[in-house]
Design a protein around this nucleic acid. Sequence first.
DNA 1: CGCAGAATTGATACATCTCAAGCTGGGTGG
DNA 2: CCACCCAGCTTGAGATGTATCAATTCTGCG
Lengths: 248, 248
Amino acid sequence: MLNEKTVSHSVECGDCPIRHRAVCARCESDELERLEEIKYYRSFEAGQTVIWSGDRMDFVGSVVTGIATLTQTMEDGRTQMVGLLLPSDFVGRPGREGSAYDVVATTDLVMCCFRKKPFEALMERTPHIAHRLLEMTLDELDAAREWMLVLGRKTAREKIASLLTIIARRDASLKLQTPKGSMVFDLPLTREAMADYLGLTLETVSRQISALKRDGVISLQGKRHVTVPDFGRLLEEAGDDSDGGMLA
Amino acid sequence: MLNEKTVSHSVECGDCPIRHRAVCARCESDELERLEEIKYYRSFEAGQTVIWSGDRMDFVGSVVTGIATLTQTMEDGRTQMVGLLLPSDFVGRPGREGSAYDVVATTDLVMCCFRKKPFEALMERTPHIAHRLLEMTLDELDAAREWMLVLGRKTAREKIASLLTIIARRDASLKLQTPKGSMVFDLPLTREAMADYLGLTLETVSRQISALKRDGVISLQGKRHVTVPDFGRLLEEAGDDSDGGMLA
DNA sequence: CGCAGAATTGATACATCTCAAGCTGGGTGG
DNA sequence: CCACCCAGCTTGAGATGTATCAATTCTGCG
């Protein structure tokens, strides 16, 4: 694993940017202290593989900054992205040895890691962590099922619009805004990565983006910077209910 | 909800057929007693809807016998099945009001239910339940992601073979067998339900089943009873690794 | 300047969908 | 007991959306 490094200077958990959303979100200060004892940071450069499918995983952790993807690959090379890991998302599965997926950094990435054994032990004693992890896992399950509808039943155009919708929402939530009206954000993925996420080819992705641009649903500044003049219109194109399917 | 009934005569948890696999699998006898106090059975006829998407859910529970499906539907009627609920599978989400999906009984169905509030309270005090639920949710997440690969990247023929593989595996595991060699089982789904699971039309499902039959991968006795002469061959057709991707 | 990776665009092939007819088997009523 | 009926299924022919193969065109960068 080239170019990966362990960052020695620890950040205080109290100042952590993902403090309120990660596995540790529910922890009291004494629980946080115990987590602090076993945590360490690792950073990865864009393009680096964090974990290979099937590899033994001796740690779990949270994305602090940057973006990573979870992908599955068939023997003949077909690949499907099965998750997009954004800041505060959790990586790894307590109680299991190996990773079921490739985890790849698509941007420079910083992770807050815990060795698996001590983390598992701590989880046993700290219901707040277990409870938060359950909550996060249930959210991920909902997201995965939502994505099954996209993959199974939506057209290429709807798939692109759905992906833009998700990225726009997450971008807005980072800025503590409600997604509506006019929005501007960057695509954190190449056309090929988008294709792997959507179960399409990169050519189809490119064509559909061009079509959405032609039809005024989006406009581009460069290849990556997107302007959505009307978020409601984008939702329609995605085939979603206008409320966006948000749940309490 | 027509024809649904609450079964009064409780089964003892100790004799329960899903005792060793359901949320209660890890419970000690005293914990089981407390669960027993708040549990009740409900049964549904084949075809009945257990819960509508968006409905308030005042209970959670486990499938005891029978099969149910989890589906999402778009406004224009396109539907995608996002989960198949077999005996021991858990229904409902602690900490959330409504259901995100339609839950439909595809066969006659018996569920072991708990009112949500008392169950949530009990979960707080009973780490064994919370822990088991986390484990089950992580398994479901893996299954959902596995299915994303099927939906996004597999051909119609591979999709059918993948579904048969799953049903064969689960059937074998109920009989405490290892899936291999020659296998015989029933399809618990109509062609249309299979299509909704696989993101295909029912005509394509029918054609591909005929093709697999022609090629000797399977044979049918009637529409539902399937014989697989060589499970390894079926796995190849599904595009899976020969080990079947089983994880520790 | 010119190269390399990323993206766009075009022409064609092909898998799956759509629409439309029949078939099959189990149940029902005459 | 038979004839009919109907949901579930199969099969066919043609339309369509996406993949594939193949050039170009961008864009950032040494």
